[in-house]
C-alpha cells in the first residue's frame, strides 16, 4: 500500500555563523508511519526539530505539512497547523500539575475567547470541562503511573517523559516529533514506550522520532534517515540502513571494509 506524503522537508539548510549545522536536508514523511531520524551526537537532529517547530529559522529551504508551508511561522501557529513535539531534556511546566500541563496543550483546539474565559459563562465552563476530560483521557492513554494532580516536577522520570507525550498529543497533532523519548529509560519503561508509540501510530498520528536506542528505532520505524555532520547520508527501511556502508562508517568510524 502506498501512503500519502504528509510532511515534506525540502532543502533545509541552517548555518550558525560559519558553522553549517544542516545542509540541504530533504525528507518526505508518509502519513501514518514512524519515521526515525538517527545520527551521531551533533549530527543536527535536534536542530532540524527546532527548525520544524519554529524555534529556529532555516537559512534556506522549506517545510510543508499537508501541502501547507509552515516555514518561518511562529511556533504556536505551527502547533495549530498540526506539528507537536517533546524535548530531549524534559521541559514540562514544573510548578503546574500533570493534568494542567496537558490542559495547556489542549488550548490550541479551543474556541472560547479571552473575555469569555475570564467571565466563565456557561459555554466557557463547559469548554473547561471538555478540556479537563480530554486531558484526563490522554493521561490514561499514555499510562501515567503517579497521580496527575501532583506538580509535574515531582513526577518520576519515566512519568515526566510520558506526560510530555500526553501534552504534545493534547494539541491534536497530525505529526508528533519526539526527541529521544527513550533517553534514560530502563528496559521496562522502554518497552512500555514502544507499545505507546505503536498505539499512537495505530491511531493515525505520524511519528517523527529522534532516538539513540538503535534497537528501538530498527524495530519500530517504517523509514529511517541518517544524519551525519548536518548531511543526510542515508534513507530507507531499517534493513537497508543496517547494511548501508556509509552508516556503518559514520557510527563506527574508520574505513568501509
Amino acid at each position: 500500500m502506498k501512503k500519502k506524503i504528509i510532511a515534506e522537508i525540502s532543502d533545509i539548510t541552517k548555518t550558525f555563523g560559519g558553522l553549517v549545522a544542516l545542509s540541504n536536508i530533504d525528507l518526505n514523511i508518509k502519513g501514518g508511519e514512524i519515521f526515525g531520524l538517527i545520527g551521531p551526537n551533533g549530527a543536527g537532529k535536534t536542530t532540524l526539530f527546532n527548525i520544524l517547530t519554529g524555534m529556529y529559522r532555516p537559512t534556506k529551504g522549506f517545510f510543508k505539512l499537508e501541502d501547507v508551508e509552515l516555514t518561518r511561522l511562529p511556533p504556536h501557529l505551527i502547533v495549530k497547523a498540526g506539528l507537536a513535539r517533546t524535548f530531549q531534556n524534559i521541559r514540562l511546566f514544573g510548578t503546574m500539575t500533570g493534568l494542567e500541563n496537558v490542559m495547556v496543550g489542549c488550548h490550541v483546539r479551543t474556541n472560547i475567547g479571552v473575555v469569555g474565559a475570564i467571565l466563565r459563562h456557561k459555554g466557557a465552563r463547559q469548554e473547561e470541562e471538555r478540556i479537563k476530560d480530554r486531558a484526563r483521557s490522554l493521561i490514561d492513554y499514555v499510562g501515567l503511573n503517579a497521580s496527575s494532580a501532583q506538580a509535574a516536577s515531582t513526577l518520576s522520570y519515566g512519568d515526566q517523559r510520558r506526560l510530555e507525550i500526553a501534552r504534545a498529543l493534547a494539541t491534536s497533532p497530525k505529526v508528533i516529533a519526539l526527541d529521544e523519548p527513550a533517553a534514560g529509560m530502563n528496559p521496562t519503561e522502554t518497552s512500555q514506550l514502544r507499545e505507546l508509540l505503536v498505539k499512537i501510530r495505530e491511531d493515525g498520528i505520524t511519528i517523527l522520532l529522534i532516538e539513540h536506542d538503535v534497537k528501538l528505532v530498527m524495530g519500530l520505524c517504517d523509514t529511517v534517515a541518517v544524519l551525519d555532520y548536518g548531511i543526510k547520508i542515508a534513507e530507507g527501511t531499517p534493513s537497508e540502513i543496517k547494511s548501508n556502508p556509509e552508516v556503518i562508517r559514520a557510527y563506527l568510524g574508520g574505513d568501509v571494509p
Binding site: H76, R85, F87, F93, M96, V104, G105, H107, R167
Partner: peptide, 19 residues
Amino acid sequence: RAMRATAESPQIASLMGVN
C-alpha cells in the same frame, strides 16, 4: 493556565500552542 505556562517558560509555552 496559559499565563502560568508562559511564566515558567515563554518558549515552551509557545511550542505547546500558546500565543
